[in-house]
């Protein structure tokens, strides 16, 4: 068993109206809680659907636990837990009936866990799912995925439709399960806040390309915000990777990926938080920096 839970290589998916995901290569370490962050339309849902075998790729490969989620579905499905966007459930079923559905459709099913978790969340098992609040439905959907006792849990925008309190409760549920089982979690989101509390790895996806992939601790440690008198960033860019540059009349601010080199003393160094790094990367295109508007603002 490799220590990589999910591996994709040049993975692509084309729909009738064009490519939804293209040349996506990434690795998700086993046991990690990985956030997949990107703007709407970046291909996050497409990528996750390919990972769980809901759809089939047009090009490239995807491996989950060393197997193909589509052609080895019989072996992969029992080891995967999935909560789709908007957490679909059969609204006419009660919670208890929903669990029965889970029990009948899964060889491995922890009914005791499901009922205990529902009880802990104050959910009435005889209540129809359609009558629950959005947050409660999300919790039922998460319970369904967790009761499979999966090795890999995939959550597609699980908290996007929830209010802040429900969002916190949902993520706490994920955290508890991770602590308890040590499973791998992949969680997509276009919201960066809150993720740092739950996730230890992060992958950014924009235009179906990954810009940043790695442990959050290393990502945060590896980036610096430099401020200094207004100047050309070219001298810094020769040795450092400049992710974003902004200029005011007197000052230039650079977000750089540190690579061990020391900085010129004219730059003041600051720590930078994850959200700012992610936002900078989502606007960052390698090789495009020279034509960016910020660059043009610099007088020559």
């Amino acid at each position: 068993m490799s220590d990589i839970a999910v591996r994709t290589s040049e993975l692509g998916k084309r729909y009738r109206d064009g490519w939804a995901l293209r040349d996506c290569t990434l690795e998700i370490p086993a046991g990690s809680v990985t956030a997949l962050v990107g703007p709407n339309g970046a291909g996050k849902t497409t990528l996750l659907h390919l990972v769980i075998g809901l759809s089939r790729q047009t090009s490239g490969t995807v491996e989950v636990l060393g197997l193909s989620p589509r052609s080895d579905a019989k072996a992969v499905l029992p080891r995967l837990g999935f909560v789709a966007q908007d957490h679909p459930l059969y609204r006419a079923l009660t919670i208890a009936e929903t669990f029965t559905l889970g029990r009948r459709l899964n060889a491995q099913w922890d009914e005791g866990f499901a009922r205990e978790r529902a009880g802990r969340l104050g959910l009435d098992l005889d209540k129809k799912v359609g009558k629950l609040s959005g947050g409660q439905q999300a919790q039922v959907a998460l319970t369904m995925a967790l009761a499979k006792r999966p090795d890999v849990l995939v959550l597609d925008e699980p908290v996007a439709s929830l209010d802040p309190l429900a969002r916190r409760e949902f993520l706490n549920g994920v955290l508890e399960a991770v602590v308890e089982t040590g499973m791998t979690v992949i969680l997509s989101s276009h919201i960066v806040s809150e993720l740092e509390r739950v996730c230890d790895h992060l992958i950014t996806l924009a235009d179906s390309r990954t810009q940043l992939a790695g442990s959050i601790r290393e990502i945060v440690a590896g980036h610096r915000l430099l401020t200094g008198p207004r100047s050309d960033a070219a001298s810094v860019a020769r040795i450092h990777d400049v992710i974003r540059e902004t200029h005011t009349e007197r000052q230039t601010t650079l977000l750089v990926r540190a690579n061990g080199h020391v900085y010129d003393s004219c730059w003041e160094q600051h720590e930078v938080d994850l959200e700012e790094i992610v936002l900078a990367y989502l606007g960052y295109r390698p090789g495009m920096r020279d034509t960016s508007p910020a660059r043009e603002a610099v007088p020559s």
Partner: peptide
């Protein structure tokens, strides 16, 4: 129509 097939197809049995 309701997307519940995504729940059904990600249980332990093949589609």
């Amino acid at each position: 129509e309701h997307g519940t097939y995504r729940l059904a197809w990600t249980q332990g049995i093949t589609r």
